[in-house]
Simulated scan of single mutants.
Amino acid sequence: MKIRRPRRPRQFRVADSAQQIVGGFLLAGPFVVTEEVWTLAGSMSAIQAVLTICVVSAIGYGALYTADTTRDPDAEQEVAGVPVRFISLLLVSFGSVLILALLFNAPATLIQEPGTTGDVAWTTLKAVSIGSVFSIVGAATADSVFSK
């Protein structure tokens, strides 16, 4: 006898994004204002930043669809073949870290050798990729725990 896997509703709601936002901001905060994160970001190469973004995406997808066995990515709403819930999770993860970094004026305060505006923006994006590793865990956990 085969046990059927329960499926969650296909509809992605605003409440789901709100839950992700709370979780994302909760775990992003401590890493945005940590000098070590900004020092690491300053020394990262482009390939390391891209790989970090890939790790964030893998963690998010795994948390949503592998760790939570009641959720099926094929049964959810999609945009260009990507589940809307996963897109929302990535936007919340990277967005919450970026918003907090700018709100707290972290780039101007924590970048050791600012250089040009482009250098500051590049270092900020790398710092956001680092902070998103933690933010996505909070966002995915909140989404899985509080979803119906």
Rank of each mutant, 00 (worst) to 15 (best):
R4Y: 00
R4K: 06
P6M: 05
P6L: 08
R10M: 01
A18F: 11
Q19S: 14
V22E: 05
G24A: 07
F25S: 11
G29H: 08
F31N: 04
F31C: 03
V32P: 04
V37H: 01
G42C: 08
M44D: 02
A46E: 03
I47W: 12
I53A: 15
V55Y: 04
S57K: 02
I59T: 03
G62A: 03
A63N: 06
L64Q: 09
A67H: 02
D68K: 15
D68R: 15
P73H: 09
D74S: 14
V79H: 09
V79S: 13
V79W: 11
G81P: 05
S88I: 04
L98D: 10
I99M: 12
I99W: 10
L100C: 05
L100Q: 13
A101I: 10
P107M: 09
P107G: 14
P107Q: 13
T109R: 12
Q112P: 03
E113S: 14
P114V: 12
G115F: 07
T116R: 06
T117W: 05
V120Q: 14
A121N: 11
L125K: 14
K126S: 12
A127P: 13
A127K: 14
V128I: 14
S129L: 07
S129Y: 05
I130R: 06
S135D: 02
A139C: 06
T141E: 00
T141M: 02
A142S: 14
S147K: 13
K148C: 00
